[in-house]
Structures are given as C-alpha cells and as structure tokens.
Nucleic acid binder design. Structure first.
Lengths: 117, 117
DNA sequence: ATAACGTACAACCACATGGTTGCACGTTCT
DNA sequence: AGAACGTGCAACCATGTGGTTGTACGTTAT
C-alpha cells in the first residue's frame, strides 16, 4: 500500500483525456508490456504519420502515463504504471460512494420515524 | 464476480472522455453518493448555465455512467457504477501487463544463454 | 564529410468540445 | 386558463484535438 498524493483536477483531466483514445491506449498497452519502444518503432505500428504518433506520445507523457529516455538519437518510451493506479484509485473512490449510500439508507430506515421531506 | 462484456474502442473513448472533465466527475460523485438529483438541481450547483450542465449530463449518459428517469416534469439522474467498474477493469488489465513483463523477464534470465538481439 | 536516421516543432486544416442564448414543449401550480 | 417550471434542442462562438506536411537539428553510418 503505497501512499500516493492525490492528483489535481487538471491532472485528472489530462490523465483521463489521454486514455480516451484507442491509439494511445494501445501505445500504453505496448509499453506497459515491456516492448522496447522508440517513438519511431511505435510509429511504424500505426497507420498514421510519425508526427501524429509523436503527438500521442507527448500527450501520454504530459499525463504521466509514459516517460521518455534519450538513448543515442532515439527516445525510448517506458510505461508508468503508477499513474494508471491513480486513475484506478479515483474510479474506486467513485464506486465506493455507491456502496456507502446503502449504509446511509440503512441508517435512515433504522430511524424510529423519518421526517416527511 | 460478474461477467461483463468488454467495451468497444468507441465506448471506451466515450467513457474516458466523459471522465476527463472535473464538472462531470463531480456530477458522477454526487449521483453515485445517492443525491436526489434532477438535472436542474444539479445545474444549480455549478457556476454555468443550465444548458451547459444538461450537456454534461448528456455526455455522461452516452458514456453509460448515468441514467435518466422521467418523474413528472423532472428527469432524475442516477449513477451507474457498472460502467465505472468497466473503466477500472481496463486500467487493471493495463497494470497487469506491467506485472507480467517481469515473469517474462524472469523467463529470459532463466534461459541458458540468450540470443543477441 | 556526407548521407541517412530519429526526433522535435511549427503551420495548417477539419472537426469536436464546452460554453453561451433563445425558443419550443410538456408538466405543475394557482 | 394562464403562469411558472423543467427539459431538450438548435444556433452560434472560441478554443482544443487529431491529423497532415515541411523544416531544422543532433546522432549514427558510410
């Protein structure tokens, strides 16, 4: 159980926005799976220009989902699972609200008499 | 453990896109928490026009995160935690790829001699 | 040295997004 | 019946997004 600082609204916006594109989700999947991936190698996998893929990687990097590391003239893209965990954490919190409402409901039903409105 | 059918790329796009806005995340939080919420009651909470909030609710509805139910002249907005779970499931799968890479790595290191390249 | 490669970035374009106002229409209240 | 309310939708606008091509620049290979 690692203590993770919560993300700001703007960071969450960027994070979920980055995940809202199938090409970017695919890139994340590849780099998380450990594929040795320079930007151009990634680009060769998709039916779009190098520049387009480069932009996608930049979006992922700004969202913190990947990092880039210079290696000669190449930039190697690596996945950052921690940011995935943070996104997941938020979803879990939202789901938790759903669960908690029932305990609230129970409390209301346990009242001797509930006030009208 | 409920068997959930996987979402299409387009559905995932809509789902994460819907979550990539702090106003929408806040609406989700409210309705998941069980707040009795017509569209106009929700709208009164935010510093923007009714129409803007109505659009946000529409985006959430198309993403499957909320449902609307007629009640007289009002439309009551309810949260749908299942769609949250599906988004969370995808993140978990991506994180799982990260974990699995190490077992792959272990296998490679366990090789008597690894081929160059 | 020169060519080829990998990357970054700017300019541009079509379209989506998030906001606005205004209007139409069904429902509720007097 | 008529006023007020709640909602949906269209038109509009500024800005963002996802794609393109072209250019520049450092790194590697010949």
């Amino acid at each position: 159980m690692v203590a993770r600082s919560p993300l700001s609204d703007a960071e969450l916006d960027r994070l979920f926005r980055a995940l809202a594109d199938s090409t970017r989700r695919d890139i994340v999947a590849r780099v998380m799976a450990g594929e040795q991936a320079s930007v151009s190698v990634l680009a060769s996998r998709y039916d779009m220009s190098f520049a387009a893929v480069q932009k996608h990687v930049a979006v992922l990097e700004e969202a913190g989902l990947v990092t880039k590391h210079s290696q000669g003239r190449e930039r190697i893209v690596r996945g950052n699972p921690e940011q995935l965990a943070r996104a997941r954490e938020l979803l879990l919190q939202l789901e938790h609200l759903w669960v908690e409402r029932f305990s609230q409901l129970d409390a209301i039903l346990a009242e001797p008499r509930r006030p009208k409105r």
